[in-house]
């Protein structure tokens, strides 16, 4: 069952000669964990903004084609551009890269309550929903803390909990870990993985670095100058190191090792039938190497 269907999407920012997205077609299934990557300017953020309604609701420009939000109404699908930004909040949760710029309240529990208040949730239900959202993000202990006292990783998890409280079907995250340290990054990715696995929430995330996300995601989409250059499960797309090099996206070390082992003549070509699957984690790369010894 599709969750988002993108049809012939072209978008140009004002005063820009070339479009930021050009005839993009993409279907995202409900419950999918999808990573959008590409070099700076490839169109990652623009694509995400078309999905979460920031385009066209906040960002002016020329938009052609459609982003369909499925099951948004009983009758079926509706274009994101026709749903107002606040209305969209019930279906799509948006998390941005700057932890500081998306927290509006002085206290954590008030921050989670903010969206609930906006969408007219009965105050009697709020305590439970706040508690659940915080628990799902592993930050129940932060409930009464001042938001200004939190670390970046904690702030991002508060931001996720705040949109999660609205029970969206889809989470759209634009480089949510770019400002975080390794512990913070790990904590945020763990939350996303669990939300996807345990609650079936569709995750759409844009990142420069795919090393940590590759083992977690169902599909990687590589953008190049506003077009989809390559997409598929990580083990499939990692078969094409030259495309990664051309697009300026770093191939994760475990996959690079597999390619280097082919070069060194100890592994058959990775697309041949008797080749092992490309490793996504250090553990898998270790097992693969171990088998050769």
């Amino acid at each position: 069952m599709p969750s988002i269907t993108i049809e012939n999407l072209t978008f140009s920012y004002p005063d820009c000669s070339s479009p930021a997205l050009y005839e993009v077609n993409l279907t995202i299934e409900a419950g999918e964990f999808i990573v959008i990557t590409g070099a700076t300017g490839a169109g990652k953020s623009t694509l995400l903004r078309c999905i979460n309604g920031v385009i066209p609701h906040f960002q002016p420009g020329t938009l052609q084609g459609n982003v369909w939000l499925d099951r948004a109404t009983p009758s079926g699908r509706v274009p994101v551009a026709r749903v107002s930004a606040p209305q969209l909040a019930r279906f799509i949760g948006s998390v941005f890269d700057d932890p500081e710029g998306q927290i509006v309240s002085p206290i954590v529990e008030e921050e989670i309550a903010f969206g609930l208040e906006n969408t007219g949730v009965d105050p009697a239900q709020m305590d439970d929903r706040i508690a659940k959202a915080l628990a799902d993000c592993g930050i129940s202990h932060l409930r009464h803390r001042a938001t200004s006292s939190l670390s970046g990783g904690q702030k991002q998890r508060v931001a996720i909990a705040a949109v999660l409280a609205l029970a969206p079907k889809i989470l759209v995250l634009d480089e949510p870990t770019s400002e975080l340290d390794p512990d913070g990054t790990e904590a945020v990715l763990k939350v996303l993985f669990e939300l996807n696995k345990n609650h079936g929430i569709t995750i759409i995330i844009a990142e420069q670095k795919v090393t940590l996300l590759a083992p977690l995601c169902d599909r990687l989409v590589l953008l190049e100058k506003g077009r989809i250059a390559l997409q598929g499960p990580p083990r499939k797309v990692f078969m094409h190191p030259y495309i990664f090099a051309k697009l300026g996206v770093e191939l994760p070390a475990p996959a690079r090792l597999a390619h280097a082992l082919v070069q060194a003549g100890v592994l058959p070509p990775l697309d041949s039938p008797d080749a092992p699957p490309i490793p996504l984690t250090v553990e898998e790369a270790f097992t693969l190497s171990r088998q050769l010894l």
């Binding site: 979460n52 930004a85 529990e109 007219g120 609205l166």
Partner: peptide, 16 residues
């Protein structure tokens, strides 16, 4: 942007 994508501005606001 962050506020509106969290439903700010909808009618019928309630208070925690």
């Amino acid at each position: 942007m962050a506020m509106e994508t969290r439903g700010f501005g909808l009618p019928g606001r309630t208070y925690y």
